[in-house]
Amino acid sequence: MTTTLLLVAGLFSLTFPAAVAAEAPGVPPVLSVKAARELGAGSTVTVRAVVLNGDEMGNIRYVQDSEAGLALYAHPAKLPGFGELRAGDSIQVTGQLKLYNGLLEMDPVASLHKLAGGRRLRAVEVTAAQATTAFIESNESRLMEIKGVTRLLTPANTPVRTLAGNANYLINGLPGALVRVTAASTGPDGLIDSPLPTAEPFDLRGVLSQYAPGGTGGYQLLPRLATDMVLGGGLPRLTEEPVPVDVNPTGFTVVYSTLNPGDTRVRYGLDAKKLKEVKTDPTPTTHHSLTLSDLIPGTTYYVEVSSRNAAGTETAPPVPFITSSGKQARPTSKN
Rank of each mutant, 00 (worst) to 15 (best):
210 Q>F: 02
102 G>I: 12
271 D>N: 14
281 D>E: 12
229 M>K: 04
107 D>G: 07
94 T>K: 04
84 E>Q: 15
189 D>I: 12
126 V>M: 00
214 G>K: 13
219 Y>C: 00
62 Y>I: 00
119 R>K: 11
106 M>H: 00
85 L>V: 08
282 P>E: 09
224 R>D: 03
48 R>D: 04
258 T>E: 03
80 P>A: 13
16 F>K: 02
311 A>M: 06
328 Q>L: 15
284 P>C: 08
176 G>C: 06
14 L>Y: 02
182 T>Q: 04
39 L>A: 10
157 N>W: 07
200 E>M: 11
139 N>W: 02
6 L>K: 10
146 I>D: 01
242 P>E: 03
170 L>I: 03
151 R>M: 08
231 L>R: 05
98 K>W: 13
128 A>P: 01
50 V>F: 03
76 P>M: 12
298 G>D: 15
96 Q>A: 15
263 D>F: 05
160 V>K: 02
56 E>H: 07
151 R>C: 04
26 G>W: 05
53 N>F: 02
135 F>K: 03
111 S>M: 09
118 G>N: 11
158 T>N: 05
162 T>E: 10
268 Y>R: 10
26 G>Y: 11
192 I>D: 01
101 N>T: 11
83 G>N: 14
195 P>E: 05
98 K>A: 14
161 R>Y: 09
164 A>G: 11
178 L>G: 01
329 A>P: 15
74 A>W: 07
182 T>M: 07
318 P>K: 06
175 P>A: 06
321 F>V: 10
237 R>A: 06
246 D>V: 07
297 P>R: 05
266 V>I: 10
255 V>P: 02
330 R>Y: 11
193 D>V: 08
259 L>Q: 12
277 E>G: 04
226 A>T: 11
262 G>N: 08
115 L>E: 08
15 T>L: 09
56 E>W: 06
102 G>E: 12
187 G>E: 08
324 S>N: 09
328 Q>Y: 05
292 L>Y: 12
243 V>F: 09
233 G>N: 05
25 P>W: 04
208 L>H: 00
105 E>H: 06
40 G>R: 13
284 P>L: 09
316 A>Q: 13
61 R>M: 05
202 F>E: 08
219 Y>Q: 01
10 G>M: 03
333 S>T: 15
291 T>Q: 07
291 T>G: 11
24 A>V: 00
84 E>N: 15
318 P>L: 04
242 P>G: 08
70 L>V: 15
68 A>C: 05
28 P>N: 05
138 S>C: 01
86 R>F: 06
110 A>T: 14
256 Y>G: 09
276 K>Q: 14
74 A>K: 03
181 V>T: 00
309 N>T: 11
215 G>F: 06
207 V>E: 01
